[in-house]
Design a protein around this nucleic acid. Sequence first.
DNA 1: TATTGTTATACTCTATAACTATA
DNA 2: TATAGTTATAGAGTATAACAATA
Lengths: 155, 155
Amino acid sequence: MSQPAAAREAWLHIVQLFTSDETSRNFVAAAGDVGLTAAALRALLALGPGVRGVPGRHSEAKPMRALAQDWHCDPSMVTGIVDQLEQQGYAERRPHATDRRVKTVSLTPAGSAARARAMTVLSVPPPGITSLPATEQRELRDLLRKATAALPPLR
Amino acid sequence: MSQPAAAREAWLHIVQLFTSDETSRNFVAAAGDVGLTAAALRALLALGPGVRGVPGRHSEAKPMRALAQDWHCDPSMVTGIVDQLEQQGYAERRPHATDRRVKTVSLTPAGSAARARAMTVLSVPPPGITSLPATEQRELRDLLRKATAALPPLR
DNA sequence: TATTGTTATACTCTATAACTATA
DNA sequence: TATAGTTATAGAGTATAACAATA
């Protein structure tokens, strides 16, 4: 077989854990808590710096056009999402240093706080994981830590 | 701390793995391959019996009302989804044995085949997982197998 | 009268296309 | 002329409410 069976099955289990209703409901709930849509919450998470608490794929202020590429969506979507974030005071547009056409987006302190709040909700693991003995929970954490560390950088 | 930190971090890593664009794109791609929307694909997966290849939460023919409860959505959504499945020949409505108001939904052989095809696409793991050494991939699989086995049954 | 599934309707989210301003 | 971001418009997906059939 071309694709190691263990990796495939592991991934399917993750899909199942993640597809359980609890989880997806949790995400929109977390979004609602901070007054954002699901897409805007995803953006909020991506905008912040990555930590040992996980999310965040880039920390620098990026042009909106670049965000559209990162997120595989139309620039007009970015406009709407950043509008939301700005409306909640979570982010702000800043003019680019040299090119006056471009605007960059940066998280505000309030944005970081909201991100932390959202992550508190998101990080509640499903019963499948909490029911594992503590030793195995740590093993799982370590393996997954390695796995996410190996994710390709955002192009 | 009330919630074991290891479980929380493990879960956040899973969220990150799953939220990577590749993955969500994969899902809608898999749905498109079998001519369904994302929601209908989720239904198709849930309708089939669970296997060592993972998904599937109930194997019996269930009334549509029950499906609406399982999936936490409005009955009208179930109508639309089952319409799609039936249109593709993946499922069929059958009258209930005793109560003529209710209709049950069952997967057809074509439905099972489509499910298998979709799962082939869905089971492609992200690079974070395949880059782990084989031993760790198996460890990860075993831990996750336990975790999904411990998921509460669909009420 | 209550319940099952369906249909009709409105609302949200996202994508496509036209527009303004800078380069 | 080409590019960054925005606005206007349309399409898909989902939820809410009214409906017909059966209990």
